[in-house]
Design a protein around this nucleic acid. Structure first.
Ligand code: SF4
Ligand code: SF4
Lengths: 162, 162
DNA sequence: TCAATCTAGGATATCGAATGTCCATGATTG
DNA sequence: CAATCATGGACATTCGATATCCTAGATTGA
């Protein structure tokens, strides 16, 4: 039960893009170098964000990605699901149907109690992530990260932004 | 991001054991036949429950497993973690350390904001599961499952219980 | 006593998803 | 027109989940 590494990468990329000035773009190359992750593989995650409509892209030199919406309008849940997909942690394989005492004619009108409970926990997980936006993250990072590191990182990215 | 199949099996086994009369035991063989899952592999999950102290075991003919505690004293979270382990869904690989602007001397006194948010969601998931006991499950099953199926299943298991 | 049955657990094989690389295509820029 | 970009398909690799088999040691019941 673990999320893909790409989820972590995507969240950090979104965090970086949240502080990108209006109209600028960051390429896969720049984002991968900044985070020290393989360019081609990171590209897959960014394409996921693109297909989910969370980022806007342009082609050609000086092209790349930027957020499609303001940071306070994008939740963690959206980013996570864009990369990881929407399937629940608990997969029901209907083993109750294997019960040797069970009549063939019996039809299950609803998912069994075990699955309902597990899915409720997944829902709580999703709600927690849906309550946090990229803007919230930016705010926390302002407190966590030393100001001069933020400044140098910003400059580093600006040199490469299209 | 998905739980092992063994989690589903273990929960169903616990559900069955919750209705087992005092002093009786169910063998891996019986449990695997009842649920239609491979005996040897189910055994691994049951050994997980055993090491976590959730079930009590006896050896020899008429041996097997029973709950080590009353059903209202065993939570879903305990069963899930006994089989699945305790690691969080989000694994932090410290990619912030790869930031090219970052001074070598900078030390991270706490996990980064992204990880803290993701772990908060995991915590909500765990709290939800910790709030449900096997006794709660039994109650729901009484409503869900036709009485005659419950009765036949109980008899089937009693024939095989040691 | 002894054969049968059980759990515990190590060794190994198989499968599919996660991870990572490479390349072709078409669009855009300067 | 050459360089750079996103997209996406085709792989190769790695790793954990799934599954099987076998041995050791304990217990039961005949
Ligand atoms: S959880 Fe319920 S529905 Fe899912 S397999 Fe088990 S019995 Fe079937
Ligand atoms: S989430 Fe934070 S701590 Fe974890 S890898 Fe990303 S930056 Fe590092």
């Amino acid at each position: 039960m673990n999320l893909k590494n790409q989820v972590e990468w995507a969240l950090h990329c979104c965090s970086v893009m949240a502080s990108l000035p209006e109209g600028r773009y960051l390429s896969t190359r720049s984002l991968s170098e900044f985070h020290g992750v393989p360019k081609e593989y990171l590209g897959k995650a960014l394409q996921g964000l693109s297909k989910a409509g969370l980022v806007h892209t342009t082609l050609g030199p000086s092209g790349g990605y930027r957020l499609a919406r303001p940071a306070q309008a994008i939740t963690f849940l959206e980013v996570v699901e864009a990369v990881e997909g929407r399937k629940s942690t608990f997969q029901c394989s209907e083993i109750r149907a294997n019960n040797p005492c069970r009549p063939k004619s019996l039809c299950d009108d609803k998912p069994c109690a075990v699955a309902r409970i597990m899915w409720r926990a997944d829902e709580a997980w999703r709600q927690t992530l849906a309550a946090v936006t990229l803007a919230d993250l930016q705010e926390t990072l302002q407190e966590d990260v030393p100001a001069d590191l933020l400044k140098r990182s910003f400059d580093w990215l600006m040199e490469r932004a299209g």
